[in-house]
Design a protein around this nucleic acid. Sequence first.
DNA 1: GAAAAACGGGGACCATCCCCCCGTTTTTTG
DNA 2: CAAAAAACGGGGGGATGGTCCCCGTTTTTC
Lengths: 209, 209
Amino acid sequence: MSAPPQPRLRADAQRNRERILVAARELLVEEGPEFSFDKIARRVGVGNATLYRHFADRRELIHHVVLSVVSRIADRAERARAEEPDAFRALSRFVHAAADEQVGALCPLLDGDVDRHHPELEDARLRMERGIEALLSAARNSGQLRPDVEVGDLMMALSQLTRPLPGPGCTNFGQFIHRHLQIFLDGLLAPARSQLPGRAATFSDFRDN
Amino acid sequence: MSAPPQPRLRADAQRNRERILVAARELLVEEGPEFSFDKIARRVGVGNATLYRHFADRRELIHHVVLSVVSRIADRAERARAEEPDAFRALSRFVHAAADEQVGALCPLLDGDVDRHHPELEDARLRMERGIEALLSAARNSGQLRPDVEVGDLMMALSQLTRPLPGPGCTNFGQFIHRHLQIFLDGLLAPARSQLPGRAATFSDFRDN
DNA sequence: GAAAAACGGGGACCATCCCCCCGTTTTTTG
DNA sequence: CAAAAAACGGGGGGATGGTCCCCGTTTTTC
């Protein structure tokens, strides 16, 4: 048979690859899918050629970033659901955890910057969607979640509230994110304290164009 | 005496100037303070030279954008307070109005991109801060606002929730903004449904570096 | 309808980015 | 521990896009 397709990366290569993915996720969240490759290299402290050795082009890099974020979010959803008996507490724990995982990086899922039908990614995405839907259904069924919100509402607001602000300032915003998430979560509790305008946002509102 | 320092602009010049300010506000919100001058010109449908005729440099343009946003926000706060007898309804109305005014453009107030001590701006800023503080105090005194939030919490979350997402996709987010603001407002109602982590954010947390 | 004011698009100059090349350094292997 | 293999870094060409100015043309004003 043929040689293993991945003959195992050298130790430093593996380390660099992961640090690149981390930096790419940050830049993706900060600047959107048009981030600069050289900037990532500078941030990691690595030559820019290293980027191209690991990832053929922008799409491939973004693909791996999104893949890693989506699976981590999926993990968080599943763990929250498994380990937290109270349905709304599980949801709440997930929301705070997802903030730490930079959910904002999911935005490029929306436009054409990612191969939406890549099987690996499709699997992870489904796992994530099911996990989050499950958290939400459980909270709704337990009567703790207001009935007029959908999963897209949660995901959009979560993405927005956790995104860093543009420009060099605004550095101390980070320490308040979890407060605002918590306030938002309080607004999600039943009974609903107001009637919401418009219609509820679904996952496809969050995902599609 | 000397001639009037502003001999009154020609009609088309006045029109262009205002359209430039509108486009600049949009780009400021979308891309942060490093937006491209040419892009503004293209969006307005005007030659780029027109920009430089009206504004000497980036700082001056940003200054005028921020000034106009701040005074409009101040207006909104004062009108909400004057016309809405119920304190929390006044706050709520202000929040939704501020979203339409692109509060996100206030971020550059934070870093060095604006002359923070320009008297005109200082006046408008004070008027805005007093107006919003008044809305908040009234809501707190009426017992409708949870007591553990400060004005900075409101302003930060408001800025975040109303910012457009990066990248060309995500176009349909706009229609859900008011839903998420409403959920957040519901979370602000007394009695508090949870204990918030960290400390409350003040105006200076929102304003200073 | 003439003077004054404002406009628009092109262009020179500069920064930055992408992507590749190749001499050097680090890791692995026997 | 030395030689082979793998990965690295930084420089550079070419292209893109940005800023800012210049000047012939159009629009407004009186």
